[in-house]
Design a protein around this nucleic acid. Structure first.
Lengths: 342, 342
DNA sequence: GCCTCCCATGTAATCGATTGCAGTAGAAGT
DNA sequence: ACTTCTACTGCAATCGATTACATGGGAGGC
């Protein structure tokens, strides 16, 4: 049950540990005969490198840490999948952490990742301001890229989509579908996603002359339950707007569910939009019109930035990259398309 | 940017590295004055342990590895959440790996976890037979618990629910609701979950006199798409049974979606059941009747078994534990309850 | 036949934290 | 005052892999 070490392989092959290392890592000149002997010995003993020892020596772990607000949110799990895919087959592993939308837990996770010597960190900060110190402190110690969300007061690389542009697409589409008044349902404005989306919503609504009553901006959290609650509130208040714009798909699913419960037809009575295009968005009743984020591309960029940063000393780095990719509108059945009934 | 080491702290505090280590780990007697000096020095330098070095020395990483077939399946992500929770606040971290339902990728992940010296592994094997060698080999090297699914030809601990009992609950409920014929939609019989659930289904159907035509057993994979395809096939064939029993909720969601598309009413024309009770099960139209697995308990047992195994030498261990917890039926709107219309 | 040069291999230092053993000083006992 | 603890503290080995440097031997050149 003892783990096999390089020394045992060396013994068996009748060579030194240095030679074994050279053979197994493919570095350094070793005669073919010795190579064969070493490989045989390693094979027979079932040798596997101890990557802890290797990591200590090389100060590289071939490990990337990722911290997301919640892995039960399908959007984030799909991002995780994309990142894993982007890391490729080069033997790099992903250390996944769930911050439970709590900046304190998040800070602990980040510290733990630093202690574990990950080569880089990809984080989607839970909170728009409270996540700041921990993220910045971590970024000072090793390569870090913020994904999707970002936190104020930090200067790190960031990759995500242009939320403002996305909201322009959404609002234009709703307007075309005849919406003249709208409501916004999001989480509290404590993270950049909701913040940006809300800002984009307000701006374009104004430009298009779509009315937004102050009491029609409802902020809770990213969950189906909150969407349901918020929609019920709107419906029971009696002045349902023409459209309900949601900050993510979970909320939108809750909204359409409430509408179904109250017998409010979507989209003829009220149009509803989501954001993220999670798998379940198309399964809703009706299927959700939503904003699709180019996850694969986002993930690829994030990994690229991380690699870039690893190659450069922390101190030597120039200004941080801020990459906003273009989102796409996915039109389904929860909005009025084409003719525009209104 | 250099990481602060224990030696630097020792220098600054004017003591030896041994003393610093003793202070910081709280082991060994150190005079109060020195303690204060060391703590101050560590604080000022922003010292953080290098857990790689610590792991090498202690051959413990305070890390648990977890391998699941797919993290985009909400059931597995909720299991992951439960395990993370069960690991508690003791500074233990979870190394999460997605096997993409591919035994080969799974084997690579397991090997990588072993190389990374995790203290234990929790795995839900992707394949009922092909996953065997890798799982067994890994279990020979370190503590391993199989979760939910298990693989034949291995002797490791396992925790999950009693699928046979669960299916008994499902079938009894459907029978009470008037079902006299039923269909089973699952994944290929290449993993224990489907296998067991199918077996339980067949057995109880027979006992209750519920008819199951051979062509009404449809096997594909765990996805909404497959559920939709399978249901469409049943509907178009023209002899829809009284009930469709699905091996998981994703499939069931696909089935109800197809029914909606074809104008088949659930549950009056056909009853539908899922399995797992994922969050979206209650959001379906209609909300799904399904089997709830006691995840928190499953996770807690798994962690307990792992801890137990760590305390015992691999060779010294007795027979492996096989813990089947009791599942519960969650009745919602996709089945006929109470009176039993028929 | 002798001297270079280079290829193959070994020796030992290194990464950073932990810990068994040894040594020291001060207190307590007689 | 001398012994005997004991409470601290330091030295150095250790975990396993990597690698700079040292070494040895054979090939080729003169």
């Amino acid at each position: 049950m003892q783990r096999v070490t390089i020394a045992q392989v060396a013994d068996r092959a009748g060579v030194s540990t240095a030679t074994v290392s050279r053979v197994l890592s493919g570095r350094g000149p070793v005669s073919p005969g010795v190579q064969r002997k070493v490989r045989r010995a390693a094979e027979e003993l079932g040798y596997q490198v101890n990557s802890i020892a290797r990591a200590l020596r090389n100060s590289r772990t071939d490990t990337v840490g990722m911290v997301v607000p919640s892995i039960s949110n399908p959007f984030f799990t799909s991002l995780v999948e994309s990142v894993e895919h982007a890391l490729g087959r080069e033997g790099r592993e992903l250390f996944l952490c769930d911050a439970r939308s709590d900046p304190e837990i998040e800070a602990r996770r980040l510290a733990s990742l630093v202690a574990r010597n990950v080569d880089g960190i990809i984080v989607s900060p839970s909170h728009g301001t409270l996540s700041g110190p921990a993220v910045q402190e971590t970024a000072d110690r090793l390569p870090l890229v913020q994904l999707d969300r970002f936190v104020g007061g930090t200067s790190t690389d960031w990759v995500g989509v242009d939320d403002i542009a996305a909201m322009r697409l959404v609002m234009d589409h709703l307007h075309e579908g005849g919406a003249r008044s709208a409501s916004f349902v999001g989480s509290l404005l404590t993270n950049s996603s909701t913040e940006q989306r809300h800002a984009g919503f307000q701006r374009r609504a104004e430009e298009l002359g779509i009315g937004v009553a102050p009491e029609h901006v409802l902020l809770g959290d990213y969950s189906v339950d909150w969407g349901e609650t918020a929609a019920a509130r709107l419906i029971e208040a009696g002045d349902l707007p023409d459209a309900i714009v949601c900050a993510d798909d979970l909320i939108a699913l809750g909204v359409t569910r409430a509408c179904r419960r109250y017998g409010i037809d979507v989209p003829s009575r009220v149009q509803v939009t989501g954001y993220d295009n999670i798998e379940f968005a198309r399964l809703g009743e009706p299927a959700l019109t939503t904003v699709d984020q180019p996850r694969a591309q986002i993930a690829a960029e994030a990994v690229r930035l991380l690699d870039l940063a690893s190659r450069t000393a922390t101190a030597e780095r120039g200004p941080s990259a801020h990459i906003a990719l273009a989102p796409a509108l996915v039109v389904r059945d929860s909005t009025v398309s084409g003719g525009g009934r209104g």
